[in-house]
Computed example of a mutant assay.
Amino acid sequence: MKHSIVIVDDHILIAKAIGSILANFKQFEVLYECENGKELQEKCNHKNNVPHIVLLDISMPIMDGFETAKWLKENHPDVIVMALSMQDDEQSLIKMVKCGAKGYLLKNVHPVELENSLNSLIKMGFYYPDWAANKVFSSISNGNTESDEKIHFTEREKDFLRYTVTEMSYKEIADQMFCSHRTVEAYRDSLFEKLGLKSRVGLAVYAIRNGFDS
C-alpha cells in the first residue's frame, strides 16, 4: 500500500516540481495539492481526502503553515506534518514543532534525503536533519522516562525551559526573568549538561515534549 501525500504550497511550480519528484518514490503517491491551509481544510471535510502525510510550506496567504499545522494537530492528529520551507531559523523550527510538525526540511533538499525523510516519518514518526537537532528528537521520541525522572531541575531552570519555546531572544528572556544575560546563559549551560543537549532547539523540543510549554 502506498502512503498518500498532500502538498500545501502557494507556489504552484514548486508544488508541481515536488509532486514530480514524489512520483518516483515507490511507497508514496500524491493525493492532491493545495495553495494554502484553508483549501486543505475544505478538502479534508471528505474522509477520502485525508492523507497520511502533509508536506507543508510555512509562508502562505490566507492560512499559513503554523495555523495549518495546529489545525491538523487538533482535528486530524493521525496526519503526519512535514514542514518544507525556505526558512531555516530556529524560531520557525520551534514554532512548527510546537504546532505539531514531526519533520522539517528545507526546499533545497536532495530528492534522496526527501525520500529517506518520508520513510523515517512512516517508520519512526519523525524526521529532522542534523541542523534541526535530529539526535534530540530521536532520544525524546524513544522516551527515556526513567533517566528523565532522575534529572533534577531548579524552579528557575524550569522557568527558563518554558521560555525556550517562545520567540524571545536570550536577552529578552533575561528581562522577563529579572536577571542578567549571563545568568540566563548559566541556566542554559546547566540544562545542556543535564540533558546532554547542544542547542536551544534541543531545549525547546524537550520542553514541548515534556509539558514545559504550557
Rank of each mutant, 00 (worst) to 15 (best):
E172C: 02
T166E: 11
N210C: 01
V54Y: 10
D148K: 13
Y187L: 03
E67M: 13
S59P: 03
E35P: 00
N142S: 14
I151M: 07
S139N: 12
N49Q: 14
D78E: 08
K70M: 07
D189A: 08
A174L: 08
L56S: 09
E185L: 15
V112S: 11
H181Q: 08
K102A: 11
A204T: 06
N48C: 08
Q91T: 15
Y32V: 02
V6F: 03
K135A: 03
L105I: 06
V112D: 12
M168I: 03
S180E: 10
I122Q: 03
Y187R: 02
K70E: 14
L93A: 03
Q41N: 12
L13I: 05
V165H: 12
I5Q: 06
K198F: 10
L197H: 07
S180V: 05
F192I: 11
L13D: 00
E155S: 13
I122L: 01
H3T: 00
D175W: 05
A174G: 11
E67S: 14
S147R: 12
Y187E: 13
V81W: 04
V8W: 03
V8S: 08
P129G: 04
Y206G: 10
Y128I: 00
E29C: 03
M124D: 15
C44W: 05
Q41F: 00
Y127T: 06
V184H: 00
M63V: 07
S141Q: 15
K171P: 01
W71H: 09
S20Q: 12
F153D: 05
K150V: 11
L31Q: 11
A69K: 11
K98Q: 11
A83F: 08
L191K: 08
F66G: 00
A204G: 02
S141M: 15
P77Q: 02
E146G: 01
M96G: 04
V184C: 01
Q176Y: 12
E74C: 06
I208F: 11
G196V: 07
P129S: 01
K38W: 13
L121D: 09
M124I: 08
L114K: 13
E146W: 06
G37E: 08
N119A: 10
F192M: 06
Q91H: 14
S85N: 08
M60H: 06
K16T: 07
